[in-house]
Amino acid sequence: MQMVAYESRSSVNDIQLITRVVAGDAAAERELYEMYVDRIYRLAFRLAGDDELARDFTQATFIRAFEKIGSFRGESSLSTWLHSIGVSVSLNGLRKTKRQRNREAPMEEGLTVGSTRIEADPDLKERLARAIDSLADKYRTVFVMHDVEGYTHEEISGTLNIPVGTSKSHLFQARSKLRVALADFAPEWAS
């Protein structure tokens, strides 16, 4: 997995790039985009699970970043700042999408009334996906960032604006809930 080295503050290169973007240099905007788009898109896709939504979130992230880059003070690294926008945009977007789906749900539920719902025993992949989806946003985000995408607790802390200890705590909670949800598969990790 390609990772950008974590820095607590903006590097000289970041500052130069930001200065050019603020000055309206279109090439610098493209450069900034090319540097971070892969990670932002991957994270948005992991959170959304849908290509169209991931694209929307990624685009909105960069649009917001270009609009607000003038107010970026360099207190965190550019990567952290961009990721915090990306996560915020993605989670807010998903909440909105979820609300819309909930409004549509009653009609779909109405169609299934009276029918017996028979489900095949889901395999591990499916069960895990559902278990992760059912986690609270704060746990799911930390879990996805750490265990799936490989971010460090420091990066997560900077991105989500939470203490490192809270990030670790959220990850612990997430793993505990997943462990319960995947209890049927215990022999697979016990062996």
Partner: peptide, 23 residues
């Protein structure tokens, strides 16, 4: 270890980022 390995399939993004389209 088991969880990290299994979770790699969770909402797995495509190999290619649609950079130009998004730009």
């Amino acid at each position: 270890e088991f969880l990290k390995k299994a979770a790699q399939s969770y909402n797995a993004p495509p190999a290619r980022t649609p950079r130009d389209e998004m730009w």
